[in-house]
């Protein structure tokens, strides 16, 4: 009986991230439009876009290989699996021990690996530029992210996300300088990994500095839909991750009643809404930076992560 309920919760979680991801993208776009005093498209526009793309035929370049056709599904699948393992409204997911935080980051790395390869498959200059820059950004974002994970793991004694979340919601953690640094570093990494301003601009198409959009320039139809979907899922994943680690209140513990689940869901929606609003505000307030400034930006995140870890190493022994 317990197993069935746990499986149900896990299934709900997978469905929730899948259904919520396009809405989040639409919501961020709407707020950004309103902040610029534009009307903006409806918040459900991403769903319409996805449905339309899925129905259209896929146009492939003449020399596109099988990898080009397989990659979108692999990218989607790895991102979805990663997103399904981050606790959203309920903790203690039945499959949470499948992958810890390090493995979740590596799963995202798997998706990026194939995205970068797909960008190079047709052999256009834009695809190559996108892949090359994406890998540059990843080469700094990934270590910064892992150092943040080190900080969290040292506080919680585990890299398992549900353990970290459970510990962070307990009163014994308190305020720590290291955790503050980890939060800032994580936000910077999230901005870079999702290709948001100031690192990349999700709204451009014809600009030499673009990264993500350049890689997927050759995609159309259902393949494009899968990649767009994966990008939305990734944004939701990072917001859920930040919410579950740093504002874990309201996440239902395993074995609690439906009322707590409803509360958890409401809290989760509120957290994501606030996160989306902050993201939109941040993106509207600043300008995009040059590509070769991005390493400085991410280097700062890296240093914050390292400082946070070192502070913990030092403070634990005092």
């Amino acid at each position: 009986m317990d197993l069935i309920r746990d499986l149900f919760v896990q299934g709900m979680q997978m469905a929730v991230v899948l259904l919520l991801a396009p809405l989040l993208t639409g919501f961020v776009r709407k707020i950004k439009a309103r902040l610029l005093r534009r009307q903006g498209p409806s918040v459900i526009q991403p769903y319409r876009d996805l449905a339309r793309l899925l129905r259209k035929e896929a146009v492939l370049a003449e020399n596109a290989s099988w990898l080009f056709r397989v990659a979108p599904y692999l990218i989607f699948a790895s991102t979805w699996v990663a997103a399904a393992l981050v606790p959203t409204f309920a903790g203690g997911l039945v499959f949470s021990w499948t992958a810890d935080l390090i493995a979740i980051i590596a799963l995202l790395g798997f998706g990026r690996f194939f995205l970068a390869l797909a960008g190079m498959d047709v052999g256009t200059s834009f695809g190559g530029i996108g892949s090359s820059r994406e890998m540059l950004i990843a080469s700094l974002a990934e270590p910064a992210m892992l150092l943040t994970v080190f900080t969290l793991a040292l506080v919680a004694g585990s890299t398992q996300l549900s353990t970290v979340a459970a510990l962070m919601s307990s009163p014994e953690v308190g305020l720590r300088v290291s955790l503050g640094m980890a939060l800032v570093a994580l936000i910077m990494v999230a901005v870079a990994e999702n290709g948001r301003i100031p690192v990349d601009n999700p709204a451009t198409h014809l600009e030499l500095t673009m990264v993500h959009e350049a890689m997927i320039l050759e995609y159309s139809g259902r393949h494009l839909a899968m990649i767009e979907f994966a990008a939305s899922l990734k944004l939701l994943l990072y917001l859920s991750l930040i919410a579950c680690i740093f504002i874990p209140w309201g996440i239902a513990a395993p074995g609690e009643g439906p009322a707590r689940f409803a509360l958890g869901a409401a809290a989760y929606l509120a957290k994501i809404g606030i996160g989306a609003f902050c993201l939109a505000l941040f993106e509207t307030a600043i300008a995009k930076m040059r590509v070769f400034r991005v390493p400085d930006f991410l280097g700062a995140a890296l240093m914050l992560g390292l400082l946070g870890t070192l502070l913990l190493f030092v403070s634990r022994s005092l």
Binding site: R55, V59, Y73, L74, A77
Partner: peptide, 27 residues
Amino acid sequence: IAVSAWGAALLVHRLASRDVRRSAAWD
């Protein structure tokens, strides 16, 4: 990964579209 990639591909091909057109690269 295998099941969700395969399932997504199957669902999309069944329910949405499976047509492919070859053309010159867009770039």
